[in-house]
């Protein structure tokens, strides 16, 4: 029905084209801009510029040529691979270093010590989150506790959900990041709030203690994303 409604609006708008100049956007006919915006959306979806679903094979040489740190993110819903660059890194009042990673289309993924604590620009974002229970469990055998996650509803408001989480240690595994095989400890975090549950997986590199690979939940809209720290 979404398509039907969009289609109707599109037809209504395209049949009636218009133009405007100067002043504020707010003064232009809504029909007019609805038409032009929808046209752009449609073009992006169907035109030759639509992104291909192919997978880029990352090589060490390619990675060496890329300046700065690189994070690979693959949303499970689309399977589309994206490479993010680190645009900020800092410490604040909360334990753990925060990193802001940005994609080529300016979407931001925010990690605290590798734990997802926010997204920006997705629509239905994770606004903010606690990471302490995961960070604390990372070194030891497991742990858990309450973890507050604030999720955007689609109506412009947000809801802070107190998840009850358990982190369990699933043993050591060898993971491969690009051409390197790393020894890592595998942790699983099971969180529940009433009927709603999610499970995150983290692989912590032995020695550095860094989360090199993870599969984390970004909220009911976006679902899970697979995150690989390709280059730090």
């Amino acid at each position: 029905m979404k398509h039907l409604a969009t289609g109707l609006l599109l037809i209504a708008s395209l049949a009636l084209t218009g133009c405007a100049g100067g002043g504020r956007e707010a003064e232009r006919s809504p029909l007019f801009s609805a038409g032009s915006t929808l046209f752009t959306i449609l073009k992006a979806r169907t035109g030759p510029e639509a992104p291909a679903k192919g997978k880029v094979t990352v090589t060490r040489a390619l990675l060496d040529k890329t300046p700065g740190a690189v994070l690979q993110v693959v949303p499970e819903k689309t399977g589309l691979q994206d490479f993010l660059q680190r645009v900020a890194q800092r410490s604040d009042g909360t334990p753990g270093t925060v990193e802001v990673w940005q994609s080529s289309d300016q979407i931001q993924v925010i990690l605290r010590e590798g734990v997802l604590v926010g997204t920006k620009g997705l629509g239905g974002d994770m606004r903010s989150a606690e990471a302490q229970t995961v960070i604390a469990a990372r070194d030891g055998q497991g742990g858990g506790g309450e973890r507050l996650i604030t999720l955007a509803r689609l109506d412009g408001t947000a809801q802070t959900v107190p998840y009850a989480c358990d982190v369990t240690h699933l043993g050591s595994e060898t993971i491969q990041i690009v051409d390197r095989r790393l020894s890592a400890r595998h942790f699983r975090e099971d969180c529940a709030y009433g009927e709603t549950t999610f499970s995150n997986d983290y692989w912590v590199e032995a020695g550095t203690g860094k989360i090199r690979r993870s599969r984390q939940w970004a909220g009911p809209q976006f679902g899970y994303m697979a995150i690989d720290l390709l280059k730090d």
Partner: peptide
């Protein structure tokens, strides 16, 4: 001063 205009359907 600001001037704005538009021509469109109604």
């Amino acid at each position: 001063p600001d001037f704005a205009w538009s021509i469109g359907p109604y």
